[in-house]
Nucleic acid binder design. Structure first.
Lengths: 236, 236
DNA sequence: GGTCGGTATTTTGTATACAATGTGTATTCT
DNA sequence: AGAATACACATTGTATACAAAATACCGACC
């Protein structure tokens, strides 16, 4: 099971990504160079290179003379997220339908098998990662180097937000998950038949469902309030 | 004029960015670590960190065991560019109109002064950099962390493509440049009055003008062909 | 003459020592 | 007691030596 440094570096990067996506490393926490060096048996130089790389992709943020930390997921970033996501997701899905290769479609189907499996028996982390993987493949299908940077950044925070509701706490939330799964199937079908219109529409539907799911979590029960004081706009 | 290492690092990064944007470093050329280390008086470690940073932003691309090179600007990337740019530019301009701070508007006006100056007396590089700076500020105004990665990547290649026509070779091209300048003024006005509709429209106009400019260069004179064999679709 | 294979050289990647910066703590002075 | 400062410690940034990989060069063989 021993491998060269390059492999250990890749392992480290993958581990950090997974940890960030699944909230095993929570937004804002500091990363300890010395500890990670020891844990993954690499020296500080390659470790710090990985840090910079992941910082560029949006997983981490680096502050001069004060080390690396997991990217924040603040109030304002959430607002940005809801503004940008529908547009980018839609564009990516449309391009995916236009450009997907047969090989990529196979990969997408495999990802969906895993996602379904995760919904049935997996942990919340497994679900988040499987869903993340599914959408990453659609990003590859779109294959537009100018869209991907933003899309991948969105996927990072989508996974982190989603982690909060991949442990469904109500009947409705559970139902939404199975619907999301069905939408994935529809997305695969649309891509396979190169139906860009359907794909774009499905991106929109899928996104709206996701947003509902998030709202169910952020505003749990509505508590059956008599008046309208707790309207949606208040928290913004 | 002596400064600490951090400053030299920043200088190096700025130099590389400028060189890439102005085609002083052409797409695809290899970068020599040893030479740059000597030129900027930094050791290889910080130099390589800069490389990774710029690679993350899209200026360079790193290939394992084979060093850094300037990002390519190929046929296929151009196609991606034309697909993604209108959407992202429009979104950024709209958000800029909604969110710009007074300070940012001042900065934008200064950038426009410089751009106008560059059109009158500056070099092609000066023009490209000034225009780049102007649009970078609109990106900051929009301030959406999910849109910015793609937007900034677009700006890099926009500058590089634009370099080819900031040396206007026909009457029409020169005229287009002055029109672009006027559009900048209109953009400033729209942002200052928080007119998101106008800003979005102007983004579209500005983009179309830019594309025309590019097309004038890519398909120079049309040569007054009698038949229609040289129609636009052929090269795609 | 051309191609294959092996060695020398250059270039890239990693480890580590050292310098600089930031942080925590104790001591002193008001 | 509380604040300020100086000192010790921990963490981050840089330089450099070394290892590994790629490239260039050269000669042998077909």
């Amino acid at each position: 099971m021993k491998d060269n440094v390059g492999d250990r570096k890749a392992k480290l990067a993958a581990h950090l990504k997974r940890s960030v996506l699944t909230l095993a490393l929570e937004p804002g926490v500091d990363l300890d160079e010395a500890q990670l060096c020891q844990a993954f048996d690499v020296s500080r130089t390659p470790l710090r290179e990985v840090f910079r790389e992941l910082a560029g992709e949006g997983y981490l943020s680096l502050r001069v003379n004060r080390g690396a930390r997991v990217s924040d997921l603040s109030h304002t970033t959430l607002r940005d997220f809801f503004l940008a996501a529908p547009m980018i997701y839609g564009a990516v899905m449309r391009l995916a339908a236009l450009n997907a290769s047969a090989q990529q479609i196979e990969a997408l189907k495999l990802a969906q098998v895993d996602f379904r499996e995760a919904l049935r028996t997996g942990s919340a982390s497994h679900r988040a990662l499987a869903n993340n993987h599914f959408h990453q493949i659609t990003g590859e299908m779109a294959g537009n180097i100018y869209l991907l940077p933003s899309f991948n950044r969105l996927l990072i925070d989508h996974a982190r937000i989603a982690m909060t509701f991949y442990r469904p706490q109500t009947q409705q939330m559970a139902k939404n998950l199975t619907e999301a799964c069905q939408q994935h199937d529809a997305i695969i079908a649309a891509i396979e038949t190169r139906d860009e219109v359907a794909a774009t529409q499905l991106a929109d539907d899928h996104w709206n469902l996701s947003r509902n799911q998030i709202e169910l979590f952020v505003m749990p029960a509505a508590l059956d309030m008599p008046m309208g004081e707790l309207s949606r706009k208040t928290s913004a």
